[in-house]
Amino acid sequence: MSFVSEIHTSLSRSLLKPILIGILALTVAACGKDDTKTKNIGFLLGVDVFKNVFEGFKNGMTEQGHFDGKNVVYHLSAAKGDRAQMKSMCEDFVAKKVDLIVTTTNGAALACKAAIKGHNIPMVFTVVLSPVRSGVVDNLQAPSNNITGVRNPLDEFIGKRLEFFKTMAPGARRIWLPVNTNYPTTKHFLTALRDGAKQMDLELMEQEIKSTSEIIDYLGSLDTAPFDAIFIPPNPAPQSKEGYEAITNFADMHQLPIIGNTLRQVEQGALFSYHVDKKQVGHQAAYLVNQVLSSKDTIPFPVINGEPDLVLNLSKIRALGLKTDNALISFARTIIE
């Protein structure tokens, strides 16, 4: 072996291997840093009433640096409350191998939870009442199964609506509640509402209502109002266009205040609403999605709460001759005059 080859072999043995490994490691590290990959996000709208969640979500994602069509692509599916649709749409997301799924409503969350089982696709839910009791997650602090989301703490604050109402109408006593007790989420707020009524010394006149026609028929059958106010629960029939129209017509006719459930309802004549703003929920979901996508590992992210806002229809208060409380006005996020 020549001297040159001796030196070459010696240097090669001592230095070449670690250098090659180092260069390879640096190359792999450089190649592995794939931050520019476009993310595919499946968004399942359980019912159309929550389309504002998607609006808020997209805005929030943009604020977090995820631009629609550039580094993120949204696959929006609307199930219109159909459970079978929800299931197939979630399975479609899984088949498309989206990077993450966002859902609205308890039904959509449960459908997609089942669909992602066995797949490494994270899910962020929104507008879910009692996520633990409804079986979407096992706990709020560190939920497993690659699922987290924004909880709707309606059961915590629904009684607050009665407190606000009592402040405006101290003399009111009976409140009509057109409720479908079989609707999956009803059980999550009804108990809290009953407790609130008890605390505020109000009589909750619960009436089992399963369809819009039942509302129309019942209210049409009344000549006088046997109650002092109407409470709109988060059930489909009283929140449907026809159902709510029948309620507002009846309320206008009998000068009754309506305790609303959404901003739209306040805009259409309800006295006020204390609810979690849908766009804000979407915004919070974007915050969570960004956290999940930024994480390299499958780790539990805590479920966060939606924040309720008071929307006050001041003109309606005055029209009905109710008390205008300065504290409520100060607390209200939105005031309609």
């Binding site: 001297f3 040159v4 030196i7 070459h8 240097l11 230095l15 070449l16 670690p18 250098i19 180092g22 260069i23 640096l26």
Partner: peptide
Amino acid sequence: WFSVVVIFLVGTLAAVVAV
């Protein structure tokens, strides 16, 4: 790593020149 690579390359060149 860059220093090591440079040392190796310059060392090799030096070896050839030295020989």
